[in-house]
Every structure is written in C-alpha cells, then in structure tokens.
Simulated scan of single mutants.
Amino acid sequence: MSQVRVHNFAVSLDGFGTGEGQSRETPFGHAGERLHEWFVGTQFFQSGDGLPGGTQGVDNAFAAQHEPGIGAEIMGANKFGPPGWQDDADWTGWWGPNPPFHTPVFVLTHRPRPSVEMEGGTTFHFVDATPADVLAQARAAAGDADVRLGGGATVIREFLKAGLVDYMHVAVVPIVLGRGVRLWDEQESLEQNFDIQSVSSPSGVTHLSFVRR
C-alpha cells in the first residue's frame, strides 16, 4: 500500500506551523516567510523556479525529497486559501495558473465545490470527508505512488491522531512566533509510534524525521 508522507513542514521553536492573521497578502499570517527562508534558499527550490544557484548540503537534501514518488496530495482549507475563500468562485489557490503539485490535490473543506483543473497536471478536488475517507480517494488517484500530506498543522494533527502518517519530516526553524496554529497540540506520546532522527543544519534549522514503527 502507498505511504502517507509529510515533507518540509516547518515549525517555529515553540511549535507553530503558521502565524496568526492569515490573509490573501499574508498566507502565513504574522510569521511572513520566516518559516520557509531555509527552503526557498535551497538549490532544489531555486532550480524549480528556473533560477541558478541555491544552497546545497543538509537543507537541500531534505527539500529535494518533496517530489519523488508522489501521486496525489491532501491539504487543508487554510493551505488552499485565506479565510472566506469559499465565497470567491474565482479563487484557485495561491499558486497561479500552474501550481507546483502536478498531481491530483484533495482539499479538505466543509463547503465542497466542483473540481478545478489547472495547468501542469494539477486538479483540485474539494471534499468534506474524514481523514480515512479522503485518504482512500487520494490513494485511488495516486495509483502505486505515495500520498503527500501538505498541511497545514491542523490537518497533519488529525492524520497523526488517526494513525495515518507513515513518514514525517519537520523542519524546526530557530524563530519564536508566540501565536498561530501549533503542530504538537494533542500529540502526547507521539514518539512511541515513530522512530525519530534529528539532523542539524548550518542554517540553524533542525530536521526531524519520523518513521512509523
């Protein structure tokens, strides 16, 4: 059976995966881009944008694991858009006409709408379902490939509580946000279900890998 994988999910030292005050102009609220500066600076990201250069080493090695073997993605409503995007029939996400997913993407929302086909092989499907039910849909779409769980923090928490995550990479960024949406809430004794490894990067980021036992 295909695996459920989380890649490059960044949290602050105090565990927040996004800041407070999300809007069209600030997808990560008051956190801005600080959670993802390490990722944007990698050779993997820069080459995807057609830019030369970028850092290599530990950060780049983790960043590059994001793409291989993925056949579908699941994301929460607040990753797809800011509060109230369901009222805008023209909203198709933050990423422009050619989103970076290039697979079917299942957006969890209590207000489903018709699927939207984008350039580059991305099709957004909007579903109101439990983690297990949406995972079944994503696995059917992914075929023999894995399913990436894209976030945000609330969705990852729900899948962890349901025991549906096989691999998770969390990048702990050396900033303190103080408010927002935390990843670790209600995850007491999570370490009992995973083998955990930690790798430090010269950028100051600590990469945590969780592999289900």
Score class of each variant (00 low, 15 high):
Asp88Ala: 07
Val107Asn: 05
Asp90Gly: 07
Asn193Pro: 03
Val58Trp: 09
Gln22Ile: 15
Pro27Asp: 08
Val6Pro: 09
Thr42Glu: 05
Val127Pro: 08
Leu190Tyr: 05
Pro174Asp: 05
Arg157Cys: 04
Glu191Gln: 14
Ala72Tyr: 00
Glu67Gln: 11
Gly81Cys: 05
Val205Gly: 07
Arg5Phe: 00
Pro82Phe: 12
Thr55His: 11
Ala89Arg: 08
Ala171Val: 05
His169Tyr: 03
Thr42Ser: 06
Val134Ser: 11
Leu51Thr: 00
Val181Ile: 13
Val173Asn: 06
Pro104Lys: 02
Glu191Arg: 06
Arg148Gly: 14
Gly143Asp: 04
Gly143Tyr: 08
Pro100Thr: 05
Ile156Trp: 04
Gly19Ser: 02
Asp87Pro: 02
Val105Tyr: 09
Ala142Phe: 00
Ala31Lys: 03
Ser200Gln: 11
Val176Lys: 01
Pro68Val: 01
Ala162Phe: 05
Ser198Thr: 13
Asn78Ser: 15
Pro104Val: 01
Ala138Leu: 08
Asn98Val: 13
Glu188Asn: 13
Ala61Thr: 15
Gly163Glu: 07
Thr123Trp: 10
Gly15Thr: 02
Val147Pro: 09
Ala132Cys: 04
Phe124Glu: 06
Met75Phe: 13
Met1Trp: 05
Arg213Lys: 13
Thr123Lys: 03
Phe44Leu: 04
Asn60His: 12
Gly71Ile: 03
Gln65Cys: 14
